[in-house]
Amino acid sequence: MTTVAGTPRDLSKARRFGLEGRRNLTGWAFLIPAALLIGVMSFYPMVQALILSLKSGKGTNLNWAEPLWYNYERLTRDTIFVQTVKNTFVYLIIQVPVMLILALILSYLLNKKDLRFKAFWRTAIFLPCAVSLVSYSMVFRTLFATDGFVNDALLALHLVDAPVNWLNQPNTARTVIIIGLLWRWTGYNMVFYLAGLQNLDYATFEAAKIDGAGPVKTFLYVTIPQLKPMILLTAIMSTNGTLQLFDESWALTAGGPANMSKTMSHYLYDVSFRLTPQFGYGAAISYVILVLVAILAFIQMKVGDRRD
């Protein structure tokens, strides 16, 4: 709630309500263009997709499903889909926390007053997400090839006895995808933390210093709490991005081996465009993703968005 507390003038209740009411209206006016655009560009197609998810059939030959939730029921029997759900959650649980912690540490280091070559570090770490997917996937596939650089390095360090067939075993293929995600998106999240850090009150850091807090304590008890709104934002975004993950699954491993690294969105694309087109079924997959993201976002909001 926006309050006018601190206003020196003594306002009557009626005037106060009038002023607040008007400000409230102004606030709504500020939201209208964005809300209208989202309504037309997102919600309208989403409603269409919801209707579509209740229809079954192939190509343009779509009819109301019998029963209406047939597509959803069919998903539970679809072994490939169930596998993609498992894969996606493996990515989510491992990659998102690791990435956000790394991004936090990096932004903290980069925000230090006495750090040299700031611009260089910042640019270098951000750049991966600016690189086209084509070159990124080529490089990663080359690096993780059986006779590739990663295996050469591991063999030289005696960490493995024989070359690892990275992209052709379920767990190592998933590892490559997670490494790829970390590589591409850590710098991206770091940018938000950096922007967030700029908006912080510098006095709190000075206070912490005076109180004799070391760098780790300052980071944990001063920086992180103040960055909470931004951490919440990146957590929701990363969860959302990972549950809708398509690029890495498509370009790095092609979902292989044997669908063991394929994501839900990749499967959605398959049933819509690559295989026999079943748009009703695809729409049902997209609503499963929506519900999963919504539940996780709701939990994150509840945990992280408390206004103190």
């Binding site: 292989g256 081996p257 044997a258 669908n259 295989l275 026999t276």
Partner: peptide, 20 residues
């Protein structure tokens, strides 16, 4: 047939499993 890609994908999966 209309399900060529489905067939191919399924056989690919089978081959991977058999090789393993």
């Amino acid at each position: 047939g209309a399900y060529y890609y489905e067939g191919r994908d399924a056989v690919s999966t089978a081959i991977t499993e058999i090789i393993n």
